[in-house]
């Protein structure tokens, strides 16, 4: 009986993690937009506006092109589901959850690749110039960002001796690791990759209305109604995913790693949410200070991330002490 109860408790903890990333995602986006608006001396939309937007989109009729295939209709759900699974597998408030071992950091990065692959196909489905443009550029950015991301994974894995996020977080939340050059470089690279992957300034502008400057938005240009709601929600979850990843890898302090009481989890959850909103407020500070880049400047930007990641890995191969 106690075993079954224990299992259900663990399952509930995993469930909380799974649903918190989805439920909080629009709010995080709302905070980002609000702070950005304030920095631009505007009042900005209400904090809960992203929830209203999704609700509104869900109740609008979905318009499909005549030649849209099943890929176009399935892709929004698939992208959302895969992003959600990836986000749910990153330890947010506690390590060692029930399914934390079912995918390591490499698998989570690859899951995001699966989502991107299907969204890029959906962009090409109707056969418009904008869709193809968006898909093509998105895959180009991914081909630059993904190697940088894997070098970050290597760095972290070489320091921690594991690619299991849960073990990494448990180790890094102790003082045993200390301040390291390699981790600083990895954090630097991680920020660049996160900006590129989430289509933020200076790589892409989520608020743009000029077609030729769009990348992600061009790819999903044809979408409407509930499909667009799913794609927006997936983008919000992906932002939370990257914030959670940064929290989990670089500032895991306060995460519930040992004690498994409800009070400990509640405290850890509060700490996690606080960190999440700090990051959400910091993102627009960087964004408002920069202008969007030309497309063919991206290799320089992401090459910087790649170089930082590579340097971190080489340092670690030279000595585990860095």
């Amino acid at each position: 009986m106690a075993m079954i109860f224990g299992f259900l408790y663990e399952l509930a903890l995993q469930g909380v993690q799974m649903f918190i990333v989805v439920l909080i995602a629009p709010l995080v986006m709302g905070v980002t937009r609000k702070v950005r608006a304030h920095l631009l001396r505007r009042i900005g939309p209400p904090l809960l506006q992203p929830y209203f937007d999704i609700w509104k989109l869900m109740h609008k009729e979905a318009v499909l092109a005549h030649n849209a295939s099943w890929i176009y209709r399935v892709a929004p759900y698939f992208v959302f589901a895969v992003t959600w699974v990836a986000a749910a597998l990153i330890p947010t408030y506690a390590s060692g959850l029930l399914f934390s071992w079912s995918a390591d950091l490499i698998a989570i990065v690859a899951l995001l690749g699966t989502a991107r692959f299907s969204l890029a196909l959906a962009g090409m489905d109707v056969g418009t110039a904008f869709g193809g443009l968006g898909s093509s550029r998105e895959m180009m950015i991914a081909s630059l960002a993904e190697p940088a991301m894997l070098l970050i994974v290597f760095t972290v894995a070489l320091v921690a001796g594991t690619t299991q996020l849960s073990s990494i977080a448990a180790l890094f939340s102790t003082a045993a690791v200390g301040l390291r050059v390699s981790l600083a470089l990895a954090l630097f690279a991680m920020m660049f990759v996160g900006i590129a992957e989430n289509a933020r300034i200076p790589i892409d502008n989520p608020a743009t209305h000029l077609e030729l400057t769009m990348v992600h938005e061009a790819m999903v240009l044809e979408y409407s109604g509930r499909h667009l709601a799913m794609i927006e929600a997936a983008a919000q979850v992906k932002l939370v995913l990257y914030f959670s990843l940064i929290i989990c890898l670089f500032v895991p302090f306060g995460m519930a790693t040992g004690e498994r009481s409800l009070a400990a989890f509640a405290f850890a959850m509060a700490v996690y949410l606080a960190k999440l909103f700090v990051l959400a407020a910091l993102l627009p500070v960087g964004e408002t200070a920069l202008a969007k880049m030309r497309v063919f400047r991206y290799p320089v930007f992401l090459g910087g991330a790649f170089a930082a990641g590579a340097l971190a890995v080489f340092l670690l191969f030279v000595s585990r002490g860095f």
């Binding site: 109740h59 318009v63 499909l64 092109a65 005549h66 109604g225």
Partner: peptide, 11 residues
């Protein structure tokens, strides 16, 4: 959500 779906020209 609403299940209303309309087929239309490419936008």
């Amino acid at each position: 959500a609403t299940r209303a779906t309309r087929r239309s020209d490419i936008w």
